[in-house]
């Protein structure tokens, strides 16, 4: 066992998969330039020394290299494509949405697209365009699996599972959770390190994780919000309210088995999402819970999300934008009345 950050765990997972399978390669901007940063958040730092022929630095051309990844995947390679910021996925949207997600279906099941896409998201002092929570644009895209990793253990295990999956898998990572070091360290970072076991392991791409057990209310989050939900739950426990905290982790498909078991137990649900409330992931999840478990609900599902505005810059505004433990606690209080 060794303690690792998400950035370190992803790096180890990528290196192990590249060593295991020659078809695996990394492609993206600034990912393997000697003297550079190993991607925007150090995840691929130094991998070019181990795999000089399979670390491909691209021009600044997201549509291009996501399309390149799809084409290489169709021909039997297993690319791991990396954007510096999740916002840049939107430049590649046609390649992801029209090609990666649809080729299997429109070929009548004769084509496979085994590719991994990695994207850092979250509001982190960079203003509007390096800050969006872009999960919402990919949940509800048939043909793509979407996961969000909030611990180093999950990051390594889900990365490895994604590489071995025969479908396009989008992995969302949060800038405040990487544990990036040196010049790439983030202010306001949250500890997401884990004990990483020796040897190979994977984490399934379709299972939520119960982070804390309680019988009064279910709080669901992912990425940074899973951590803030757990923190809110600790405060609630001090006042006698016991929360189940679920890290949704798999955003497409949702793990309604795990979520449903909790909802049946507590009858109360708060979903926490970083990102505008309207049309967000939590909207889909709330509707899905209502459709499936309305008999168990003691009150309507409540969402705690960002307001419907772009991500602001000023720290006081950004802090108001991002859901925080006090807002989560207030939502639980409202439900418990």
């Amino acid at each position: 066992m060794k303690r690792m950050s998400i950035a370190e765990a992803l790096r180890e997972g990528i290196a192990e998969e590249m060593a295991r399978d020659e078809a695996v390669f990394c492609i993206g901007e600034d990912i393997s330039v000697p003297g550079g940063w190993g991607g925007a958040f150090t995840v691929t730092l130094g991998l070019e020394k181990l795999f000089p022929d399979r670390m491909i630095d691209t021009p600044i051309a997201e549509a291009g290299f996501f399309g390149v990844s799809v084409g290489a995947a169709v021909m039997g390679m297993r690319p791991i494509a990396d954007v510096q910021y999740g916002d840049f996925l939107l430049c590649a949207m046609d390649q992801i949405h029209s090609n990666a997600s649809m080729l299997r279906y429109m070929s009548g099941g004769t084509v496979k697209v085994p590719m991994v896409m990695r994207a850092p998201v979250g509001a982190t002092g960079r203003g509007a365009q390096h800050a969006r929570s872009t999960e919402r644009f990919f949940v509800g895209t048939p043909g793509i699996k979407v996961v969000a990793v909030s611990t180093a253990y999950d990051a390594k295990g889900m990365l490895k599972a994604a590489v071995r999956d025969d479908n396009p898998v989008m992995i969302f990572e949060h800038k405040l959770l990487y544990g990036s070091k040196g010049a790439r360290a983030e202010s306001g970072a949250v500890d997401a390190t884990s004990e990483i076991p020796e040897g190979d392991y994977t984490v399934p791409l379709d299972k939520a994780a119960v982070r804390r057990e309680g019988s009064d209310v279910t709080i669901i989050g992912w990425l940074l919000m899973a951590h803030l939900a757990a923190s809110a739950a600790e405060s609630l426990a001090a006042e006698g309210v016991e929360a189940d905290v679920i890290d949704a982790r798999s955003l497409s498909p949702f793990d309604y088995d795990t979520i449903g078991a909790s909802v049946r137990k507590t009858g109360r649900v708060v979903i926490v999402e970083e990102g505008p409330k309207t049309g967000g992931v939590s909207a889909e999840l709330a509707a899905g819970i209502a459709e499936r478990f309305s008999d168990s609900l003691k009150a309507p599902v409540v969402r705690v999300a960002s307001p419907d505005v772009p991500v602001p810059f000023a720290p006081v505004l950004e802090n108001a934008y991002r859901p925080d433990p006090p807002r989560i606690i207030a939502a639980v209080h409202g439900l418990m009345r």
Binding site: F25, D53, R54, I56, A63, G64, F65, F66, G67, V68, S69, V70, G71, A72, A73, V74, M75, G76, M77, P79, D94, Q95, S98, N99, L103, M106, S107, V111
Partner: peptide, 23 residues
């Protein structure tokens, strides 16, 4: 490959297929 009906959309795929052949 199944034809790509978004204008220009198949061009990066071809580059990726070429990359796979080279690798």
């Amino acid at each position: 490959l199944p034809a790509i009906a978004i204008v220009g959309g198949g061009i990066p795929l071809a580059t990726g297929m070429g990359l796979a052949f080279k690798m």
